[in-house]
């Protein structure tokens, strides 16, 4: 019989990139085949959505850590993803300059919001689920009706926007930019309320405390800064929070813990009240693009330029491997 000829090779995953660390060998968990830029927990905490430079969004069942759906349709990498508060929809922003909405059951495209002139890399959904905020390389923040149509285009930054966040009370939107500032916007009128200056480089991530009173930002200057959201004054500074850029942050639902993801591939858990570090979570091998707390606050999800998504127990700081599920 004819010899077996295998002239094509399957898309096997990376075996070992850092020979000094066996943890990188055959990472068995959740991953894309290109960098993962954002993750979002569903409001019921049962699923996770991940957005990747591979142009797809994957939906993961957190009971099995298996992908249950892959959403395709964006014409370029997906930079950001968020669930609506009722969990019925997903919103994504893409390097194809569009914002898309998706139904979650069944997982399918629902609509496309066009208007940004460049990459969309930041997405946030208002607490009432009616409005989407998107941040773009076109230097604007746009507020969209979730059903379609632009509500406002927020202009004020002088450079690329990297991050946006809605306050939990829904009254303000924060945006961070390559111009080194954070702007707090009135979520209804779209007016600029405060421009927060202090970072000495691009602002990479912003997030609100659970009571909406404090805004936290992180940036390329490796600092984490706490700001009074009403006055716009800086109230605390963590210098050298990471060895490289502070790329991502999240505040736990109970407001007690701040998580930051860094360019040093580490995740740090901080006591929100004191700013003291509590734990360093190691496992990623590249820049941590997003960290998110689960709705019950017990689990932290992270995603990385190393193509992987990881889950961590907040209490212990231990990685949750598939075998533990």
């Amino acid at each position: 019989m004819a010899a077996i000829v295998s002239l094509g090779w399957p898309a096997t995953h990376v075996i070992a990139q850092n020979p000094r660390d066996p943890a990188r060998v055959n990472f068995p968990g959740m991953r894309h085949f290109r960098p993962v830029y954002d993750v979002a927990f569903s409001p019921d905490g049962k699923t996770l959505a991940s957005a990747s430079l591979d142009s797809s969004i994957k939906i993961w069942d957190l009971a099995t850590l298996k992908a249950t759906a892959t959403l395709t349709g964006h014409g370029d990498g997906v930079g950001a993803v968020a669930f609506t508060p009722d969990g019925k929809m997903l919103v994504s922003g893409s390097l194809d300059s569009s914002v898309r909405t998706w139904t979650t059951s069944p997982a399918a495209t629902a609509g496309t919001l066009a208007g940004h002139g460049m990459y969309v890399v930041a997405i946030a959904v208002s607490p009432d689920g009616k409005t989407i905020a998107s941040g773009s390389y076109d230097k604007t923040v746009r507020l969209w009706n979730i059903g379609g149509g632009t509500r406002a285009t927020l202009k004020g930054h002088t450079d690329t926007i990297y991050c946006v966040a809605y306050s939990p009370d829904g009254k303000t939107v924060a945006s961070g930019s390559h111009d080194g500032t954070v702007i707090l916007w009135d979520a209804v009128t779209g007016k600029s309320l405060h421009q927060l200056k202090g970072h000495s480089g691009p602002v990479e991530c912003v997030g609100y405390s659970h009571d909406s009173r404090t805004l936290v930002s992180g940036g390329e200057d490796r600092t984490v800064r706490f700001w009074d959201a009403d006055s716009g004054r800086q109230t605390r500074l963590i210098e050298s929070a990471h060895e490289k850029v502070v790329k991502s942050l999240a505040v736990s639902p109970d407001g007690k813990t701040l998580a930051t993801g860094g360019g040093d591939a580490n995740i740090t858990l901080w006591d929100f009240a004191t700013g003291d570090p509590r734990a360093t979570l190691r496992g990623h091998f590249n820049v941590v693009y997003a960290v998110r707390f689960s709705p019950d606050g017990k689990t932290l999800a992270s995603c990385c330029f190393d193509n992987t998504i990881r889950l961590w127990k907040v209490k212990t700081g231990k990685s949750i491997s598939p075998s533990e599920k």
Binding site: A3, I4, V5, S6, L7, G8, W9, P10, A11, T12, H13, V14, I15, A16, Q17, F33, R34, D54
Partner: peptide, 21 residues
């Protein structure tokens, strides 16, 4: 020669495998 399945798993792993994407 093109059939890498004929090579040992350990050597393939030593090379690092990688992704066809």
């Amino acid at each position: 020669a093109l059939d890498l399945e004929k090579e040992s798993v350990s050597l393939r792993d030593r090379y690092g495998r990688g992704s066809a994407e």
